[in-house]
């Protein structure tokens, strides 16, 4: 008889614990404005990422289409994945000297782990992390980018290599 009563009591105790749990879920059911789901593709316009968010490596250009990369290759050495290739070319400066400058700063986004080491290592602060995170493309080759924009030149005040 005693064990039977214990059995009945345990059933009600068990039900009570379930009700306590349902109280929590019920509370949110009736206060839907406390929900936190982001409607992602719809809120694209308003979605602002944090300023330090690492989405991709970009090269900073000013309004005159000038960057501050002198082609030293330090970022290439510092990248653990070989995602950066520096192709430099030599030009003749106005006073007749030979000078090596950056031709193409090639960046393979598909191989990049967004570790920030290249940005940190760059002595002239030419690189930065961009906030764009929508990187899906149809073809893998589109993930290889040239970071110095077409027709861009090196800014005046950058110290030489």
């Amino acid at each position: 008889m005693k064990s039977f009563i214990e059995y009945i009591v345990s059933i009600f105790k068990g039900l009570w614990t379930l009700l306590i749990g349902m109280k929590v879920t019920g509370k949110y059911f009736f206060t839907p404005w406390k929900n936190v789901t982001q409607q992602y593709p719809e809120n694209r316009e308003k979605l602002v990422m944090f300023e330090r968010f690492r989405g991709e490596v970009i090269m900073l250009h000013n309004e005159n289409n000038e960057h501050s990369c002198n082609g030293c290759g330090i970022c290439e050495i510092n990248c653990p994945n070989g995602s950066i290739e520096i192709i430099s070319k030599s030009i003749l400066t106005a006073d007749g000297k030979k000078k090596r400058i950056i031709d193409q700063h090639i960046y393979h986004l598909g191989m990049c782990t967004l570790c920030n080491l290249c940005v940190k290592a760059c002595p002239s602060g030419a690189l930065a992390m961009g906030q764009n995170f929508e990187h899906a493309v149809w073809d893998r080759s589109l993930l290889t980018k040239v970071l110095n924009q077409e027709g861009s030149t090196i800014a005046e005040n950058v110290k030489e290599e």
Partner: peptide, 22 residues
Amino acid sequence: LRDREMILDIFEETCGARLTVN
């Protein structure tokens, strides 16, 4: 996950990433 989101936001703001913070 709702509560974890707040920590990940803290990471994202200071470290720049949510999981692979480096």
